[in-house]
Nucleic acid binder design. Structure first.
Lengths: 230, 230
DNA sequence: GGCGAACTTTGCGTTTGCTCAAACTTCCGG
DNA sequence: CCGGAAGTTTGAGCAAACGCAAAGTTCGCC
């Protein structure tokens, strides 16, 4: 497989490496395409590989014993994921699913240690990513615990626009497919409630939405809604 | 200050070190006592030191802009905490408060890197701790999102007994002071609801509680309550 | 030993958001 | 172009939990 070194230059975990080092890392990598809805790896399975998302979007989800699921975080292009080894785990702690058609590189997990040892900055940048992720989850947890459903949904919409918003004439469009059900899995509510909220907001001119697609036309209004007493 | 090397031998981050190395680490450390309710460090402040809890219990909390707070995790004796550097953060991402009278060692944060570089196994064990913590928070998040209040409160009581339960004739007693309000901060509900639940459970002979103190007399019944449709 | 602060209990009215149910729309494959 | 699957909308009734309020209890301090 031909992979150009330009794929990795500039990405945080590799930014301090020279062309030759990146060439070497790419030679170790496997590239694969995932259809929307495809599972990359599953919670509880042996963590055999770690990944880097090149294009697309992923959801990282956890499933409860009784079948309910919740979306723990999203992965955007350029991010490492499935790095169980960094946390000294031998199995994946969650499941990764492609939210849109996606392309990812992956490496055998045994290379993790050698990259950490061999490449200056690789470990540092990886742990920074982990730290950010931990912070995000704490924020999500805090929101979940203290805010009403309407505020949580508003906050989640805003986060998605920040994370992958594309400017259009109408407003900021979320750059990957999202269903009402997905949003309910992110906010711990039901798709019914989400649908009602979106309908109400559409009436107020705050969002425009169609099947699997949402455009935020008035981010400022949403911002107010995401804060208590706002 | 005289600190015996036995304080650290056997604790995961130091388990692979010899007596002389531990002696050195202890010489770098500062020991301090914290009263119940005292703050060890605060969210947003410069992360100047990292800590190890020797005795007592801590709550790690986050406060929202409008004053609500939620307890993200508990720290038990033997655990490292405030290790912002491990996550490449320059400020503490949460606040640590003593839940009971506690004793902790601390080191200047600049020593973090040197310990990681110098002592075999220190980094590894620390990241393992972090991984466990991330897993715990994900579990909490999942519970928060999918379970009803009664189930969350039951689950939190069980977790606290597992974490610091002491067997008594009556049952398993939680080993540090807990108020109804604390529990509501852990579960995202109100102290009123928690009080009602505890009263009901007391009537059913599942728990015995007094001011700031809870004994679980029937863990099995609580277990059932913590599962949906149980 | 009495006062005040901290903690807990309980009641009541209200509301949020869930469940259940059914119809509608969009999309894709055959 | 038709049929079914996937996703969305909306309604109605209901229950869980909150907000507010007020009183009771325990504890530590002066």
């Amino acid at each position: 497989m031909k992979l150009d070194t330009s794929l990795l230059t500039g990405l945080p975990p590799f930014s301090r490496l020279d062309r030759e080092q990146i060439r070497q890392i790419l030679d170790d990598a496997t590239s694969r395409r995932y259809e929307e809805g495809a599972t990359i790896f599953q919670e509880g399975h042996d963590a055999e590989r770690f990944y880097l998302l090149l294009d697309g979007y992923l959801r990282v989800i956890r499933t409860t014993p009784d079948g309910e699921q919740i979306i723990v975080l999203h992965i955007s292009p350029g991010q490492l994921f499935g790095i169980a080894k960094a946390l000294q785990r031998s199995t994946y702690p969650a499941t990764a699913v492609a939210a849109a058609e996606s392309i990812a590189l992956s490496w055998p997990m045994r290379l993790w240690e050698s990259y950490v040892a061999q490449y200056e900055g690789f470990a540092t940048e990886s742990y920074k990513t982990l730290g950010q992720r931990l912070g995000e989850i704490q924020t999500t947890l805090t929101e979940m615990a203290t805010q009403a459903v309407e505020q949580r949904v508003a906050a989640v919409l805003l986060r998605m626009t920040n994370q992958s918003g594309q400017k259009t004439e109408e407003g900021i469009e979320i750059g990957f497919p999202v269903t009402r059900h997905n949003i309910s899995d992110m906010t711990g509510t039901t798709l019914h409630t989400v649908s009602r909220l979106l309908s109400a907001w559409e009436k107020d001119g705050i969002v425009r939405s169609s099947r699997k697609h949402i455009v935020v036309t008035d981010p400022h209004a949403l911002m107010l809604l995401s804060r208590p007493k706002g």
